[in-house]
Amino acid sequence: MVTGTETALEAELRRLAGSVPDPELPVLSLEELGVLRGVQILGPGRVEVELTPTYTGCPAIEAMAADIERVLHEHGVAEVSVVKVLSPAWSTDDITADGRRKLAEFGIAPPRPGAVDGPVPLTLTVRCPHCGSTDTELLSRFSSTACKALRRCAACREPFDHFKEL
């Protein structure tokens, strides 16, 4: 989290950590995914990074932590500890505007804004990332990873992943 007390070095380390690509969606950086919560210098050569998982069981977080450690090591930080924080819970609203655009360009329909709090909405349309049609149907609420649903476009007939709202 960017706060008034963040030092220039912390901001630089945060930029480095945030530039790490998501291991499963390499078009997105961790900053764009919104999972990087903070970078703190604990002492000389000692840095703590706060990371939040998209889903509680998302296995990608271990790869993210390892990648952050590697990048910061390469930039001279001797000791990197990545801690997992759950609260406040990550939401698809934390994905940046750039992140949403990149998802769509990658062929994944981005999540709709205004994350769900309550019953899962069933009726709002999702635009096909291939042809742009809004005439798409849900095939399954669960897809290739925990964070996606599987849909099909009725216009171009292509199936596609949708980053579902959380």
């Binding site: 889903y55 069981g57 998302c58 399954s140 669960f142 990873t145 599987l150």
Partner: peptide, 20 residues
């Protein structure tokens, strides 16, 4: 197949909760 993926995804969510 879709159901296979759905049940595995639900299982994964639960496993993450269990670990925490």
């Amino acid at each position: 197949l879709e159901e296979e993926v759905a049940l595995a995804n639900i299982a994964l969510d639960l496993l993450g909760q269990a670990r925490t």
